[in-house]
Design a protein around this nucleic acid. Structure first.
Lengths: 270, 270
DNA sequence: GGCCCTCAAACTGCATGCAATTGAGGCGCT
DNA sequence: AGCGCCTCAATTGCATGCAGTTTGAGGGCC
């Protein structure tokens, strides 16, 4: 029961990532302790050390990070606001388990946001920024031999790195959030880890950005994300050992096969 | 010094708004107490009872809402995550004061998100949904005689109501957040309250939605939001009595009139 | 008169303690 | 053996208390 926290931190890579400065400038988490926990948990989730549904008891967290429950609780609140964690009253917090439809929605939003990113960036990158991007993709390349976890994280961080270059804190925040959510999704629905997020597509995007072709880079980004989504979300088949009640939920109701009409929250809340 | 909280709640309209059910289904705030505070403060901010820069001391808040600082603090954390509140370590929290550039960025994002909303909704609204929308716009109409505060709130809530109809929690969340931020912005930069958010444009959007013309409704929404933004953000002229240090900031630096290159955080953080 | 220094009040950061809720195992009953 | 009830450990919800930091106001000094 209190196993999850161990994996949360003691796992592998816990030193600063190239992304670290980003998070530091963010919203509420600059308060240090809370921020540390948030970043660690995000990282653990993104690297799939923490699977969807994993329990996150406040005191285990606090103990693990050397803070009181109060702080751990606050951190969980932040992560819940980002949609990475589910908080049910009087119940242990768990890593969020987005439904298939939510996953699809997240990708739709992500596509729009990231199109905005590259639109703003097209032709406006400095030399050092281009170098930074290339270095990152090189790192992705190198990580192909390593664990999937690192690959996934690097792929996601590429997109966040891009967003960062817009210098728009709001855009950075939303892109990061939605990217994390998509990551979470991937770990739920794309078992064989089909992706690697297509390193070549990343390179193509950089090239188009440098060239300054707005339309081109927007469509590249669009199809890139679309293919990532499709590789993962081909069919709404969330058959995964856990939480069989969720699996059964669709069969409890009969009608409404429509796309927009999602099954009412009630069913899942049961 | 402890005046802000009084206005936060004792002011006017504190009963449930037609939006209330939305917020209840949201992220972490279902924990009741925290949620109540968040909603109240959001409301106060959106109705400009709380101006940007207004102080929000934890204990005043707690006292006012009959909870301990712990809870007030948690609520502030949530609002900070949404960008409505600024949290500086060891300092009193204040209502956020977005820079002109941030405001512009927020509107850009909002445009994309709301285009997505109407794209998903075009031609798919049920009769009762259309009725609900019309009723809301009627309410906006009626509120023209009332205070600006209510008009602004209703105008914003129209957009949130639309987002709600997509049944995509993520989209709802982002649209709400960014709409609130834009509202905040409006209260900063558009003094004479030039807008009313164009009730007729709202009607036009509903009509196009019913007709199901995707392209049309997307462009309508785009120009609608664009005009709202432009009415407010014509010039980066944040001359407002408060915080004259912020006003002086641009004059402290000489160069960099570029658009993407924003003045580094340092200047404002001073 | 203006400036700086000092100090106390105000406020935040955080831990801890207590009450309430949950859910899981154990016990008895059938 | 199966079923349900009951009790208790685990856990959350929340308030309070203490320590450290910021603020701003008064007083002394130039």
């Amino acid at each position: 029961m209190r196993n999850c926290d161990k994996r949360a931190q003691s796992k592998p890579t816990f030193k600063d990532s190239p992304m670290a400065p980003r998070a530091a400038s963010k919203t509420a988490e600059s308060s240090d302790k809370v921020g540390v926990i948030c970043r660690a948990l995000r990282r653990a989730i993104i690297e799939q050390a923490l699977e969807p549904g994993a329990k996150l008891p406040e005191d285990s967290l606090g103990e693990r990070f050397g803070v009181s429950r109060t702080i751990a609780r606050h951190a969980l609140g932040q992560l819940a606001a980002e949609g990475l964690v589910e908080l049910r009253r009087n119940r242990i917090a768990v890593v969020a388990t987005p439904s298939w439809q939510e996953a699809r929605d997240a990708f739709d939003i992500r596509i729009e946001l990231e199109r905005l990113v590259v639109r703003q960036l097209a032709g406006k990158l400095t030399k050092s920024q281009v170098a930074e991007l290339n270095a990152h993709v090189d790192a992705e390349d190198r990580a192909r031999d390593g664990t999937d976890a690192v690959s996934i994280r690097l792929a996601t961080e590429f997109h966040i790195l891009l967003a960062n270059m817009t210098n728009s804190p709001i855009l950075v925040r939303y892109v990061s959030e939605v990217a994390y959510r998509c990551c979470l999704t991937l770990s739920l629905y794309s078992r064989p880890h089909s992706s690697e997020c297509a390193i070549n597509e990343h390179r193509a995007i950089i090239a188009a950005l440098v060239k300054g072709d707005e339309a081109k880079v927007m469509s590249l980004m669009h199809s890139h994300l679309d293919s990532v989504a499709n590789r993962a979300l081909v069919a709404p088949a969330p058959q995964r050992g856990r939480d069989l009640l969720d699996i059964l939920a669709p069969y409890a109701e009969e009608g409404e096969g429509k796309r927009v009409v999602k099954l009412p929250k009630v069913v899942r809340a049961r």
